[in-house]
Design a protein around this nucleic acid. Structure first.
Ligand SMILES: [Mn+2]
Ligand SMILES: [Mn+2]
Ligand SMILES: [Zn+2]
Ligand SMILES: [Zn+2]
Lengths: 124, 124
DNA sequence: AATAATAACGCAACACTGTTGCAATAAATT
DNA sequence: AATTTATTGCAACAGTGTTGCGTTATTATT
């Protein structure tokens, strides 16, 4: 069985995402990380953190991928909505907002990716 | 004022999307279109069709962009859910399904991108 | 029908994003 | 301390999307 290891790069990148109030893209993480590690390593670390379910991968309406911590709190819903600002391009988790919907029976649901776009409080 | 023109490539690409029962990506459209036009032209045509609001741009959970016609029917909701199959990677518009949700007041909503992933009826 | 204006096009060149293979490194176990 | 192997760095690559510019084709005007 393949075990997971905790490395300096991995913990550092996790803390970057942790301490950010908005979701971060790979390139944003790379800028923040400086010369912490190679950019390929960042891709692989992000993949691992997603598999380990400690961060979420979010696709913006333009197909850009961003990453945010999975808040393991009571109010947190895995299926929460994300807000994507059309002006400052920030992506924010609205952890408490869980949408209600219903799909036809013959579809089986494994996950959701809900993004609402518009202007964030700073840009309104 | 910049007017829009109808060209052979534009109408052909619109019909490709129109006649597909699943959302199509740029590369899929390119394969279907053959040597109809340059791939850059396809990008520009897709942009125009989106601006003209005759097709929708959909981001899959993996950040892949797909395009589908905007069904101008009664049941059609602009804010409908899309289903992304993890097996066959097809993206389908669930035109009748409109999710219910509520965001904090200080956010202004311009559009939504709701994608549910799992297994489609064919792959269940 | 011929002309003029310009939206749309093809092509080349580029930037950005993400992946893969492999040898070297470092974390965890013994 | 030695062993195992997950992780890393590097180079090389594939895919996606953009931009500039000269040419073509659509549309409006004469
Ligand atoms: Mn979560
Ligand atoms: Mn629509
Ligand atoms: Zn904003
Ligand atoms: Zn399927």
């Amino acid at each position: 069985m393949k075990t997971t290891r905790s490395t300096t790069a991995k913990t550092a990148i996790y803390e970057l995402i942790m301490n950010s109030d908005v979701a971060l893209s790979h390139s944003e993480i790379q800028k923040l990380a400086g010369d912490l590690c190679d950019r390929v390593t960042i891709y692989r670390i992000l993949d691992r953190l997603v598999i380990e379910d400690v961060i979420h991968k979010i696709a913006t309406p333009d197909g850009l991928l961003k990453y945010a911590v999975c808040q393991k709190t009571e109010k947190h819903s895995h299926n929460h909505i994300h807000f994507s600002c059309e002006n400052c391009l920030s992506v924010t988790c609205l952890d408490a907002v869980e949408p209600i919907f219903e799909v036809p029976e013959n579809y089986s649901i494994k996950g959701v990716n809900f993004t609402v776009s518009g202007f964030c409080p700073n840009c309104s």
